[in-house]
Design a protein around this nucleic acid. Structure first.
Lengths: 360, 360
DNA sequence: TTGAAAGCGCTAACAG
DNA sequence: CTGTTAGCGCTTTCAA
């Protein structure tokens, strides 16, 4: 039964025409009505499907688009992936998926795999920095960053805010006197949420409730968020209140728990991602801290379960699905003329924040 | 800068050897140390990467493995996908992803796309039934089902239980007097959780707490679970207490809400998936039903947020990641000699179930 | 309007 | 041990 798939040659023979004609007919070229009809009939009858392998090889074109995310277990990236998939499907493009685990090395390895597959358009939630991505774009790949930008090498002064403001205009920050490789990466188009505004709004909201000791709980790729946080609360910034986890749930929990224990005087936490928010809720409960009575909590990402918590979590919503969809549009357009896009965030107030109770 | 990638020919020329030699060296064939060294050096220097397109075309082999899931926004499928990805990566195989939205038509379309890409091995959480999948396997694709089996055409009497019991032995049910196409599909290997045992344990647990009016809240692909449920509670089965949603969150919410309203006498609910569990929690809260005081809740899938709810949700845990990983192993082994695998579930008792309070 | 033929990058015979 | 050659399935000149 193992019927091997019909090739264009089979169709040609069965229809009594040349392979070129079949190719033309199937790609909408010119052909006499009679021939066209016959070819179409035979093709359908044989259940013929042109091989993408053959076609791509011949046209030295890519097959499909690559998608690199840190972790599909994180609902936000699931949403993002759904967006990409939706757009790709309507464009008839296959999507090759890779999960980086926020590990730059693994990311690089996956990029290599995509290259090997002749996938030369990729949407990435980047883990690696310029050193990973500059070579990639230089190798001729069309890349679009989603939800994040590659980490910039630490700078002396804080440029984070500047970059953020410029991005608000829908333009990637120019390579203002930076190293060449950094400029190459910042020329890559990206689809981002307006992290700066989101964080600022959240911090302002918390301050409005009287909070002064606000902690930031971040993870990989949250540097734009932490930069905005620093700007919004400081200076001076209480550096002990800014902690980072590595991306795993364990690490997030450890960071949250450590934070609460080392600084019992904090009254509010901004968790920079839903996995971190999860950890914060868990750690708070474990330490018998009541939300929002003892500690107020704002979480980045409006995942479905945010509403299920008690109290329901106040969140900064970012449009994961849209980010993915737009990124796919950009990468499919492909031209150099694509500019970055910044999508709005929204503070959704639910029940996890309250007025400061503790006196300082 | 748009350097096109080096081909095997480039390497051959630069190394002063024939293309065949390069091919051999790179695929570990025999070659003199001197030649091998030079080829390797040149290849590295040119950053040569063999094109999977060329190779696959030549070997009329597949490129990678396909993965079809209903919805990446559902954490369980995210876990499953991570498992597949992990295995595929260690095997060096790319994964082409498709999201079916639990729509058999879309699923069929995606299968067609995979076929076109010459992806002839696929892992699917199936939405369509035998009519979708029989042609696929007959077309020579190696498919492994994950987490679900294709829906069987409704039978007069209830065979669900039988099938389930046989699967417990690690064997797909034989085509005992069924239509030919059904038998073709049941010959396909699958990696499943032991849904029957999971549901039975949960029902037994609820009954032990005194519950008699237990509802089942299901979605697409939960027919094995509902069959086990029917067996565990009945007969007679109160059919009004068995409701199904279509897969969207809205539909799940509507189903849950409708259930609670139409049957205020129910005292416990078994949600057959995490999206349904989410809906049940939401609907209960909306209707001012307290969990577990007014209604006890058991949810299928141990997603991270289950612990965050108040009270934390009692769940039937199934190993999503393992299911994906094992499925990938099976599909990579590929031989006909692969048998189905059933992984254990575990009832994790947390706080969402209590003794029946209401008198009947 | 159509067909023949030349490859795309690669591997597998088959000679040397 | 190594090079030459013949395609894999397809598109695309180039003639007819």
């Amino acid at each position: 039964m193992e019927a091997k798939r019909a090739t264009i040659k089979d169709v040609a023979e069965a229809a009594g025409v040349g392979v070129a004609t079949v190719s033309r007919v199937l790609s909408g070229g010119s052909a006499s009505p009679r021939t066209r009809e016959r070819v179409l009939a035979v093709a359908a009858q044989l259940d013929y499907r042109p091989s993408a392998l053959g076609r791509n090889l011949r046209q030295r074109r890519t097959g499909g688009i690559g998608l690199l995310v840190p972790d599909l277990t994180d609902t936000f990236f699931g949403q993002l992936a759904e967006g990409v998939l939706a757009c790709a499907r309507s464009a008839g493009e296959p999507v090759v998926l890779g999960s980086t685990g926020d590990d730059p090395e693994r990311e690089a390895e996956l990029v290599g795999m995509l290259l090997e597959q002749s996938v030369d358009r990729v949407i990435a939630v980047p883990s690696g920095g310029a050193d990973t991505w500059t070579p990639v774009t230089r190798a001729g790949m069309t890349v679009v960053f989603a939800a994040r930008l590659p980490a910039e090498p630490a700078a002396d002064d804080d440029h984070g805010v500047t970059a953020d403001l410029m991005l608000l205009d829908g333009v990637a920050p120019p390579s203002a006197g930076r190293a060449a490789d950094v400029s190459a990466v910042s020329a890559v188009p990206a689809v981002l949420a307006d992290d700066g505004a989101g964080v600022r709004t959240a911090v302002r909201y918390l301050r409005g409730l009287g909070h002064r000791r606000i902690a930031f709980l971040g993870g990989p790729g949250h540097d734009r968020r932490v930069a905005a946080f620093r700007e919004a609360v400081g200076p001076p910034v209480d550096e002990e209140l800014v902690v980072f986890a590595t991306g795993s749930r364990d690490s997030a929990y450890a960071a949250a728990s450590g934070l609460f224990q080392s600084r019992p005087d904090l009254t509010a936490v901004l968790a920079a991602g839903n996995v971190l928010g999860e950890a914060a809720v868990l750690a708070a409960r474990e330490l018998d801290l009541r939300v929002p009575r003892d500690v107020s909590l704002v979480m980045y990402d409006d995942v479905p379960w945010a509403e299920l918590c008690s109290p329901p979590l106040t969140v900064i919503a970012q449009p994961g699905r849209d980010i993915g969809y737009r990124a796919a549009e950009l990468v499919l357009r492909g031209g150099r003329r694509t500019r970055s896009v910044v999508l709005p965030t929204e503070l959704i107030v639910r029940g996890s924040c309250g007025p400061r109770r503790q006196p300082y």
